[in-house]
Write a protein that binds this DNA or RNA. Structure first.
Lengths: 152, 152
DNA sequence: CTCCTTTAGTGGACATAGTCAACAATTAAT
DNA sequence: ATTAATTGTTGACTATGTCCACTAAAGGAG
Protein backbone atom coordinates (compact mmCIF):
# COMPACT_ATOMS: atom_id res chain seq x y z
CA UNK A 1 0.00 0.00 0.00
CA UNK A 2 1.85 3.05 -1.26
CA UNK A 3 -1.03 5.52 -1.20
CA UNK A 4 -3.00 7.10 1.57
CA UNK A 5 -6.21 5.13 1.98
CA UNK A 6 -8.30 8.28 2.09
CA UNK A 7 -7.22 9.37 -1.35
CA UNK A 8 -8.26 6.11 -2.94
CA UNK A 9 -11.56 6.15 -1.10
CA UNK A 10 -12.21 9.71 -2.28
CA UNK A 11 -11.46 8.85 -5.87
CA UNK A 12 -13.66 5.77 -5.78
CA UNK A 13 -16.37 7.92 -4.26
CA UNK A 14 -15.96 10.40 -7.09
CA UNK A 15 -16.21 7.60 -9.62
CA UNK A 16 -19.46 6.37 -8.11
CA UNK A 17 -20.74 9.92 -8.04
CA UNK A 18 -19.81 10.62 -11.62
CA UNK A 19 -21.22 7.30 -12.77
CA UNK A 20 -24.56 8.58 -11.53
CA UNK A 21 -24.14 11.94 -13.23
CA UNK A 22 -23.35 10.29 -16.55
CA UNK A 23 -26.24 7.89 -16.02
CA UNK A 24 -28.70 10.73 -15.58
CA UNK A 25 -27.36 12.53 -18.64
CA UNK A 26 -27.36 9.43 -20.84
CA UNK A 27 -30.84 8.45 -19.85
CA UNK A 28 -32.28 11.60 -21.31
CA UNK A 29 -30.43 11.99 -24.58
CA UNK A 30 -33.05 9.57 -25.78
CA UNK A 31 -36.50 10.39 -27.11
CA UNK A 32 -35.17 10.78 -30.63
CA UNK A 33 -36.33 7.33 -31.62
CA UNK A 34 -32.76 6.11 -31.44
CA UNK A 35 -31.06 4.25 -28.66
CA UNK A 36 -28.21 5.68 -26.64
CA UNK A 37 -25.64 3.65 -28.56
CA UNK A 38 -27.02 4.68 -31.91
CA UNK A 39 -27.02 8.29 -30.79
CA UNK A 40 -23.40 8.00 -29.70
CA UNK A 41 -22.49 6.66 -33.12
CA UNK A 42 -24.31 9.47 -34.90
CA UNK A 43 -22.57 12.03 -32.69
CA UNK A 44 -19.18 10.50 -33.31
CA UNK A 45 -19.70 10.40 -37.07
CA UNK A 46 -20.75 14.02 -36.90
CA UNK A 47 -17.51 14.91 -35.14
CA UNK A 48 -15.20 12.79 -37.27
CA UNK A 49 -16.70 12.67 -40.75
CA UNK A 50 -15.60 11.47 -43.12
CA UNK A 51 -14.55 8.39 -41.21
CA UNK A 52 -14.41 4.64 -41.52
CA UNK A 53 -16.20 2.10 -39.38
CA UNK A 54 -13.04 0.97 -37.69
CA UNK A 55 -12.26 4.46 -36.40
CA UNK A 56 -15.68 4.55 -34.79
CA UNK A 57 -15.10 1.12 -33.29
CA UNK A 58 -11.89 2.29 -31.66
CA UNK A 59 -13.18 5.65 -30.57
CA UNK A 60 -16.31 4.25 -28.95
CA UNK A 61 -14.65 1.00 -27.87
CA UNK A 62 -17.31 -1.19 -29.40
CA UNK A 63 -17.41 -4.56 -31.10
CA UNK A 64 -16.89 -4.61 -34.87
CA UNK A 65 -19.97 -6.61 -35.64
CA UNK A 66 -22.12 -4.50 -33.40
CA UNK A 67 -20.92 -1.36 -35.14
CA UNK A 68 -21.52 -2.94 -38.51
CA UNK A 69 -25.13 -3.57 -37.64
CA UNK A 70 -25.69 -0.09 -36.28
CA UNK A 71 -24.17 1.50 -39.36
CA UNK A 72 -26.42 -0.66 -41.55
CA UNK A 73 -29.45 0.50 -39.66
CA UNK A 74 -28.47 4.16 -39.80
CA UNK A 75 -27.82 3.85 -43.50
CA UNK A 76 -31.16 2.17 -44.10
CA UNK A 77 -32.78 5.02 -42.18
CA UNK A 78 -31.08 7.50 -44.47
CA UNK A 79 -28.94 9.12 -41.78
CA UNK A 80 -25.59 8.30 -43.32
CA UNK A 81 -24.07 7.35 -46.63
CA UNK A 82 -21.06 5.25 -47.51
CA UNK A 83 -18.62 5.98 -50.32
CA UNK A 84 -16.14 3.25 -51.08
CA UNK A 85 -12.68 4.50 -50.24
CA UNK A 86 -10.27 4.97 -53.13
CA UNK A 87 -7.34 4.26 -50.82
CA UNK A 88 -8.51 1.02 -49.25
CA UNK A 89 -11.14 -1.07 -50.94
CA UNK A 90 -12.04 -2.85 -47.74
CA UNK A 91 -13.40 0.31 -46.21
CA UNK A 92 -16.04 2.92 -46.87
CA UNK A 93 -15.99 6.58 -46.07
CA UNK A 94 -18.94 7.37 -43.89
CA UNK A 95 -20.70 10.71 -43.84
CA UNK A 96 -23.94 12.02 -42.43
CA UNK A 97 -26.69 12.83 -44.89
CA UNK A 98 -28.61 16.09 -44.39
CA UNK A 99 -31.14 14.08 -42.41
CA UNK A 100 -28.31 12.64 -40.31
CA UNK A 101 -26.82 16.08 -39.81
CA UNK A 102 -30.19 17.25 -38.56
CA UNK A 103 -30.26 14.52 -35.94
CA UNK A 104 -26.66 15.30 -35.08
CA UNK A 105 -27.55 18.90 -34.45
CA UNK A 106 -30.56 17.92 -32.40
CA UNK A 107 -28.46 15.62 -30.23
CA UNK A 108 -25.89 18.33 -29.76
CA UNK A 109 -28.46 20.86 -28.73
CA UNK A 110 -30.01 18.48 -26.24
CA UNK A 111 -26.64 17.64 -24.79
CA UNK A 112 -25.77 21.30 -24.43
CA UNK A 113 -29.08 21.99 -22.72
CA UNK A 114 -28.46 19.15 -20.32
CA UNK A 115 -25.11 20.58 -19.34
CA UNK A 116 -26.67 23.98 -18.83
CA UNK A 117 -29.30 22.46 -16.59
CA UNK A 118 -26.60 20.59 -14.74
CA UNK A 119 -24.81 23.84 -14.01
CA UNK A 120 -27.92 25.83 -13.28
CA UNK A 121 -27.64 27.48 -9.90
CA UNK A 122 -23.88 27.90 -9.97
CA UNK A 123 -22.30 31.30 -10.26
CA UNK A 124 -20.13 32.08 -13.30
CA UNK A 125 -17.08 31.84 -11.06
CA UNK A 126 -18.07 28.43 -9.80
CA UNK A 127 -18.71 27.21 -13.31
CA UNK A 128 -15.29 28.38 -14.41
CA UNK A 129 -13.73 26.58 -11.48
CA UNK A 130 -15.58 23.38 -12.27
CA UNK A 131 -14.39 23.58 -15.83
CA UNK A 132 -10.79 24.15 -14.70
CA UNK A 133 -10.98 21.19 -12.37
CA UNK A 134 -12.20 18.98 -15.19
CA UNK A 135 -9.49 20.13 -17.54
CA UNK A 136 -6.93 19.54 -14.83
CA UNK A 137 -8.09 16.00 -14.10
CA UNK A 138 -8.11 15.25 -17.78
CA UNK A 139 -4.61 16.63 -18.31
CA UNK A 140 -3.27 14.45 -15.52
CA UNK A 141 -5.05 11.26 -16.41
CA UNK A 142 -5.13 11.26 -20.14
CA UNK A 143 -1.79 9.74 -20.95
CA UNK A 144 -2.57 7.18 -18.27
CA UNK A 145 -5.75 6.15 -20.00
CA UNK A 146 -3.79 5.23 -23.08
CA UNK A 147 -1.10 3.44 -21.14
CA UNK A 148 -3.68 1.38 -19.32
CA UNK A 149 -5.48 0.48 -22.51
CA UNK A 150 -2.24 -0.64 -24.07
CA UNK A 151 -1.20 -2.75 -21.14
CA UNK A 152 -4.44 -4.70 -21.27
CA UNK B 1 -27.64 30.71 -24.76
CA UNK B 2 -26.54 31.99 -21.39
CA UNK B 3 -23.22 30.18 -21.17
CA UNK B 4 -20.00 30.48 -23.07
CA UNK B 5 -20.00 27.77 -25.74
CA UNK B 6 -16.46 26.74 -24.86
CA UNK B 7 -17.38 25.83 -21.32
CA UNK B 8 -20.13 23.48 -22.39
CA UNK B 9 -17.90 21.91 -25.00
CA UNK B 10 -15.18 21.37 -22.40
CA UNK B 11 -17.57 19.76 -19.97
CA UNK B 12 -19.01 17.49 -22.63
CA UNK B 13 -15.47 16.59 -23.60
CA UNK B 14 -14.70 15.75 -19.98
CA UNK B 15 -17.80 13.59 -19.82
CA UNK B 16 -16.72 11.63 -22.86
CA UNK B 17 -13.26 11.31 -21.40
CA UNK B 18 -14.48 10.13 -18.05
CA UNK B 19 -16.93 7.72 -19.64
CA UNK B 20 -13.87 6.01 -21.11
CA UNK B 21 -12.02 6.01 -17.80
CA UNK B 22 -14.97 4.42 -16.04
CA UNK B 23 -15.34 1.98 -18.91
CA UNK B 24 -11.75 0.82 -18.53
CA UNK B 25 -12.12 0.46 -14.78
CA UNK B 26 -15.44 -1.36 -14.97
CA UNK B 27 -14.24 -3.78 -17.60
CA UNK B 28 -11.67 -5.18 -15.23
CA UNK B 29 -13.50 -5.42 -11.95
CA UNK B 30 -14.70 -8.66 -13.45
CA UNK B 31 -12.96 -12.03 -13.28
CA UNK B 32 -14.72 -12.86 -10.02
CA UNK B 33 -17.33 -14.93 -11.79
CA UNK B 34 -19.84 -12.14 -11.30
CA UNK B 35 -20.93 -9.48 -13.71
CA UNK B 36 -20.28 -5.81 -13.20
CA UNK B 37 -23.83 -5.17 -12.06
CA UNK B 38 -23.78 -8.06 -9.62
CA UNK B 39 -20.49 -6.82 -8.25
CA UNK B 40 -21.94 -3.35 -7.79
CA UNK B 41 -24.83 -4.82 -5.85
CA UNK B 42 -22.52 -6.83 -3.61
CA UNK B 43 -20.42 -3.73 -2.97
CA UNK B 44 -23.45 -1.64 -2.15
CA UNK B 45 -24.84 -4.24 0.23
CA UNK B 46 -21.44 -4.37 1.90
CA UNK B 47 -21.53 -0.62 2.42
CA UNK B 48 -25.15 -0.37 3.51
CA UNK B 49 -26.00 -3.60 5.32
CA UNK B 50 -28.43 -4.28 6.69
CA UNK B 51 -30.55 -2.87 3.89
CA UNK B 52 -33.67 -3.58 1.89
CA UNK B 53 -33.93 -4.18 -1.83
CA UNK B 54 -35.58 -0.87 -2.49
CA UNK B 55 -32.68 1.07 -1.00
CA UNK B 56 -30.34 -0.71 -3.36
CA UNK B 57 -32.64 0.06 -6.25
CA UNK B 58 -32.54 3.75 -5.45
CA UNK B 59 -28.85 3.92 -4.69
CA UNK B 60 -27.81 2.12 -7.85
CA UNK B 61 -30.66 3.53 -9.93
CA UNK B 62 -31.76 0.15 -11.20
CA UNK B 63 -35.03 -1.47 -12.12
CA UNK B 64 -36.91 -3.23 -9.30
CA UNK B 65 -37.38 -6.44 -11.19
CA UNK B 66 -33.78 -6.58 -12.26
CA UNK B 67 -32.64 -6.09 -8.68
CA UNK B 68 -35.03 -8.76 -7.48
CA UNK B 69 -33.48 -11.29 -9.85
CA UNK B 70 -29.93 -10.36 -8.92
CA UNK B 71 -30.69 -10.65 -5.23
CA UNK B 72 -32.23 -14.07 -5.81
CA UNK B 73 -29.12 -15.21 -7.60
CA UNK B 74 -26.78 -13.89 -4.94
CA UNK B 75 -28.87 -15.55 -2.28
CA UNK B 76 -28.86 -18.85 -4.13
CA UNK B 77 -25.07 -18.56 -4.37
CA UNK B 78 -24.88 -18.08 -0.62
CA UNK B 79 -23.51 -14.56 -0.76
CA UNK B 80 -26.34 -12.92 1.12
CA UNK B 81 -29.18 -13.75 3.44
CA UNK B 82 -32.61 -12.22 3.93
CA UNK B 83 -34.36 -11.77 7.24
CA UNK B 84 -37.95 -10.70 7.10
CA UNK B 85 -38.26 -7.23 8.53
CA UNK B 86 -40.24 -6.85 11.74
CA UNK B 87 -41.19 -3.31 10.77
CA UNK B 88 -42.50 -3.90 7.26
CA UNK B 89 -43.64 -7.31 6.16
CA UNK B 90 -43.23 -6.51 2.52
CA UNK B 91 -39.49 -6.20 2.88
CA UNK B 92 -36.52 -8.25 3.96
CA UNK B 93 -33.34 -7.13 5.65
CA UNK B 94 -30.41 -8.09 3.47
CA UNK B 95 -26.95 -8.90 4.80
CA UNK B 96 -23.81 -10.44 3.35
CA UNK B 97 -22.91 -13.92 4.54
CA UNK B 98 -19.25 -14.60 5.40
CA UNK B 99 -18.84 -15.83 1.84
CA UNK B 100 -20.42 -12.61 0.57
CA UNK B 101 -18.18 -10.54 2.83
CA UNK B 102 -15.20 -12.31 1.36
CA UNK B 103 -16.21 -11.31 -2.16
CA UNK B 104 -16.92 -7.80 -0.93
CA UNK B 105 -13.40 -7.53 0.42
CA UNK B 106 -11.94 -8.95 -2.77
CA UNK B 107 -13.85 -6.42 -4.88
CA UNK B 108 -12.69 -3.61 -2.66
CA UNK B 109 -9.08 -4.66 -2.93
CA UNK B 110 -9.27 -4.92 -6.68
CA UNK B 111 -10.91 -1.52 -6.97
CA UNK B 112 -8.23 0.02 -4.79
CA UNK B 113 -5.50 -1.55 -6.90
CA UNK B 114 -7.10 -0.21 -10.05
CA UNK B 115 -7.10 3.30 -8.69
CA UNK B 116 -3.47 2.96 -7.70
CA UNK B 117 -2.62 1.82 -11.20
CA UNK B 118 -4.61 4.70 -12.61
CA UNK B 119 -2.55 7.17 -10.59
CA UNK B 120 0.74 5.44 -11.20
CA UNK B 121 3.24 7.88 -12.64
CA UNK B 122 1.82 10.94 -10.94
CA UNK B 123 3.72 12.70 -8.19
CA UNK B 124 2.20 12.86 -4.70
CA UNK B 125 1.48 16.53 -5.31
CA UNK B 126 -0.33 15.82 -8.55
CA UNK B 127 -2.36 13.09 -6.92
CA UNK B 128 -3.41 15.44 -4.16
CA UNK B 129 -4.43 18.02 -6.72
CA UNK B 130 -6.46 15.49 -8.69
CA UNK B 131 -8.23 14.47 -5.53
CA UNK B 132 -8.98 18.08 -4.63
CA UNK B 133 -10.36 18.72 -8.09
CA UNK B 134 -12.66 15.73 -7.77
CA UNK B 135 -13.89 16.78 -4.36
CA UNK B 136 -14.49 20.26 -5.69
CA UNK B 137 -16.50 19.09 -8.67
CA UNK B 138 -18.51 16.85 -6.44
CA UNK B 139 -19.22 19.58 -3.93
CA UNK B 140 -20.51 21.86 -6.67
CA UNK B 141 -22.60 19.33 -8.55
CA UNK B 142 -23.86 17.36 -5.61
CA UNK B 143 -27.10 19.06 -4.77
CA UNK B 144 -27.71 19.51 -8.49
CA UNK B 145 -27.70 15.79 -9.06
CA UNK B 146 -30.55 15.40 -6.61
CA UNK B 147 -32.46 18.33 -8.02
CA UNK B 148 -32.20 16.95 -11.52
CA UNK B 149 -33.29 13.50 -10.45
CA UNK B 150 -36.30 14.95 -8.76
CA UNK B 151 -37.31 17.13 -11.64
CA UNK B 152 -37.35 14.19 -14.01
C1' DC C 1 5.44 -12.28 -58.44
C1' DT C 2 3.65 -15.86 -54.60
C1' DC C 3 2.82 -17.09 -50.08
C1' DC C 4 1.66 -15.70 -45.62
C1' DT C 5 -0.15 -12.60 -42.27
C1' DT C 6 -2.93 -8.90 -40.91
C1' DT C 7 -6.85 -5.87 -41.18
C1' DA C 8 -11.82 -4.29 -42.23
C1' DG C 9 -16.18 -5.49 -42.47
C1' DT C 10 -20.30 -8.76 -42.36
C1' DG C 11 -23.61 -12.19 -40.56
C1' DG C 12 -25.28 -16.04 -37.51
C1' DA C 13 -25.85 -17.47 -33.08
C1' DC C 14 -25.73 -16.44 -28.61
C1' DA C 15 -25.15 -14.13 -23.87
C1' DT C 16 -25.82 -10.39 -20.92
C1' DA C 17 -28.19 -6.42 -19.39
C1' DG C 18 -32.02 -3.80 -18.73
C1' DT C 19 -37.17 -2.59 -19.34
C1' DC C 20 -42.18 -2.99 -19.04
C1' DA C 21 -46.50 -4.54 -17.53
C1' DA C 22 -49.19 -7.22 -14.52
C1' DC C 23 -49.72 -9.00 -10.07
C1' DA C 24 -49.99 -10.08 -4.77
C1' DA C 25 -49.06 -8.55 -0.34
C1' DT C 26 -48.63 -4.98 2.73
C1' DT C 27 -48.70 -0.42 4.41
C1' DA C 28 -50.17 4.50 4.37
C1' DA C 29 -53.67 8.01 3.63
C1' DT C 30 -58.28 9.92 3.72
C1' DA D 1 -63.29 1.12 5.71
C1' DT D 2 -61.95 2.10 1.48
C1' DT D 3 -58.63 3.80 -1.51
C1' DA D 4 -54.00 4.79 -2.85
C1' DA D 5 -49.19 3.99 -2.75
C1' DT D 6 -45.20 0.99 -1.89
C1' DT D 7 -42.41 -3.33 -2.13
C1' DG D 8 -41.18 -7.18 -4.26
C1' DT D 9 -41.89 -10.94 -7.72
C1' DT D 10 -42.61 -13.01 -12.31
C1' DG D 11 -43.12 -13.36 -17.49
C1' DA D 12 -42.26 -11.45 -21.72
C1' DC D 13 -39.71 -8.53 -24.10
C1' DT D 14 -36.05 -5.20 -26.08
C1' DA D 15 -31.53 -3.50 -26.13
C1' DT D 16 -26.85 -4.21 -25.79
C1' DG D 17 -22.87 -6.62 -26.35
C1' DT D 18 -19.91 -10.90 -27.47
C1' DC D 19 -17.99 -14.79 -30.05
C1' DC D 20 -16.98 -17.14 -34.03
C1' DA D 21 -16.48 -18.00 -38.73
C1' DC D 22 -16.06 -16.07 -43.06
C1' DT D 23 -14.86 -12.96 -47.27
C1' DA D 24 -12.11 -9.65 -49.37
C1' DA D 25 -8.56 -6.72 -49.58
C1' DA D 26 -3.81 -4.87 -47.97
C1' DG D 27 0.76 -5.37 -46.52
C1' DG D 28 4.73 -7.57 -46.14
C1' DA D 29 8.88 -11.21 -46.75
C1' DG D 30 11.22 -13.90 -49.68
Amino acid sequence: MSLDEGIIADIRQFNRFYTNILGVLNKHVLDTGYTLTEARVVLEIGFMEPCIANQLVEKLDMDRSYMSRIISKLQKDGLLEKESSPLDNRTSLIRLTPKGAELFQQLNERSDEQIERLLDGLSPTEITEVRSSMLFIQSKMNRLERAQNDSI
